[in-house]
Design a protein around this nucleic acid. Structure first.
Lengths: 222, 222
DNA sequence: TGGACCCACTTGTGATCACAACAGCCCCCA
DNA sequence: TGGGGGCTGTTGTGATCACAAGTGGGTCCA
């Protein structure tokens, strides 16, 4: 059983849906995306229901929805668990991140004003703190917030949704990767992204984003 | 009730799941992707259940899963319908198709042997027949089969799944578009795709695929 | 001591029911 | 004749139950 913690995900104004299955879905999704759960973690409908104080029905709908997004896998007998990704799958998802996020960054560039860049610098400082604390969950969450802050400016909701789906699938594995490679410094390419944004340098931005989303992969391969 | 047709989707050995919600899901998904349902078509859980001879529970799970993939939308009060896409959304989805499918085609190119190209030519002939009959559903289905046949060679299941998710979201709208623009000849860019495959011309292939997936859009804009 | 079998329990699936909310429709009155 | 209010039927939500299938462990025999 995982402690729900103070999830304070930035800027989600419309929160109170009050619909049970949606509340369960959102919380589980956030936990999975941010690496709260390790790869291969088993879950049960009755367990989820008891955790959220609901019956099996909303738990089942949440799980079904998350499974459709690739955030959970279901064995042939229906057992639920977080995915354990093969190396090929990880590489493919990283390639997808590169494809989609480079495009999102490129579309966001003309709209990236100074206030946005400053916000990204602030987030980057929070990432540095998380790295120093060795806090994997906080690092992953803040890192994704850095990217999402930029991509929201692209005004491309379908593309952003695709990118988030990839993040969701990689969540548990990202946590495991983080624990393995033991970062000691904040991501270097974030500086390049910010510099390219300030300079209005589109090719440089594309390269920086591509490098950033595939950097962890190179460390894994070694 | 729509005839399942001879989908002969290459290599789907494990078909009979016999699980009710999965059977409903697959049939609904196929119908939506291939344009059997117009945009804005309303659906009800009890109606779906009656159609497939099941209770509301499997119907609800199928709908929830399809909604998660963007194949269905749910109003704030929970009403279910196929999506009605804005022009901006259509353009965005076409851009996503271009991004992902160009990459898939590029990855498939080194593995595209003559047998595959011949199969694609056969499919292309079927497309021509569907166009002459003015059969929108058959045209959409065969056209997607043409693309999927190529992309399966890319050995990139996550990317292919993303591409299919986009197809799914565009399904109902594709049907409406087809009815509006009244094709009289088979897609010209399919020839270019096949020619580029034969020549091993990677830049040419990328351009042909990009042109093919965005051609309908240009007609819409006029 | 090692392995195979068996049983009990856990777990997902599907059906059914009660309920609240919304939609559409009709009627009535100005 | 037009618009507002109320009502009925429809629809999604969540809980509960019966059931089948698979898992895991414990026991018994060789």
């Amino acid at each position: 059983m995982i402690t729900s913690g103070s999830m304070t995900l930035a800027a989600r104004p419309t929160e109170a849906t009050s619909v049970a299955h949606d509340r369960v879905y959102r919380d589980l999704r956030s936990r999975i995306m941010h690496g709260d759960l390790p790869p291969g973690q088993a879950l049960t409908l009755r367990g989820i229901g008891k955790n959220y104080g609901v019956s099996m029905t909303p738990a089942r709908e949440s799980v079904r929805r998350l499974a459709a997004e690739g955030a959970l896998t279901m064995s042939t007998s229906g057992r639920i668990s977080t995915p354990e990704l093969s190396n090929e799958r990880i590489e493919e998802l990283a390639a997808l991140r590169a494809l989609i996020e480079v495009e999102l960054a490129s579309r966001a560039l003309p709209r990236a004003h100074m206030a946005l860049i400053e916000r990204m610098q602030t987030i980057n400082a929070v990432i540095a703190e998380a790295v120093q604390r060795g806090d994997a969950v906080s690092y992953i969450r803040t890192n994704l917030e850095f990217h999402r802050t930029l991509y929201l400016r692209a005004q491309a909701p379908a593309m952003l949704a695709m990118a988030e789906t990839v993040w969701l699938q990689m969540g548990p594995t990202m946590r495991a990767l983080y624990g393995r490679l033991r970062r000691t410094e904040p991501p270097q390419f974030h500086r390049l992204i910010i510099a390219a944004l300030k300079a209005g340098d589109e090719p440089g931005l594309r390269l920086a984003v591509r490098s950033d989303v595939t950097q962890g992969l190179r460390m894994l391969a070694s």
